[in-house]
């Protein structure tokens, strides 16, 4: 505390400015970094369910169409493959490089 002897007004202002400069870049990057971590972890947790859920929807639709139209198991087979493809598409949308504004994702 008693380390710096010239605790005049001028030197205080200078040190205050230095301290503010020191903290400014920190403040600018901090929320972004924290958000980045959170969403990275979120992406990891999302990938598996994205894939499975599309398959579940595909199988459910195929099964329902079979029940309705009586073509068992034609639609089940077809929509299982389509659901798998949709799952891969979901994961691709999740992990692809984000700096391509040209191709917009689905609706």
């Amino acid at each position: 505390m008693g380390k710096d002897p010239d605790s005049s007004r001028e030197s205080f202002d200078r040190r205050l400015r230095q301290a503010q400069d020191r903290h400014k870049p920190d403040r600018a990057t901090q929320p972004k970094a924290a958000g980045g971590d959170m969403s990275d972890l979120g992406i990891v947790l999302r990938a598996g369910t994205e894939m499975v859920s599309a398959l579940v929807v595909g199988v459910a639709i195929g099964w329902g169409l079979d029940r309705w139209l009586g073509y068992r198991p034609a639609f089940l087979i077809l929509f299982t493959f389509l659901g798998g493809a949709a799952g891969v598409l979901n994961v691709w949308r999740l992990v692809r490089p984000q700096d391509t504004p040209g191709d917009k994702p689905g609706p």
Binding site: R46, E50, A54, V56, G106, P107
Partner: peptide, 13 residues
Amino acid sequence: PIEILSFLSRPVS
């Protein structure tokens, strides 16, 4: 159909 399935999988996932 793939796009529609991908869209419909949203609430499920």
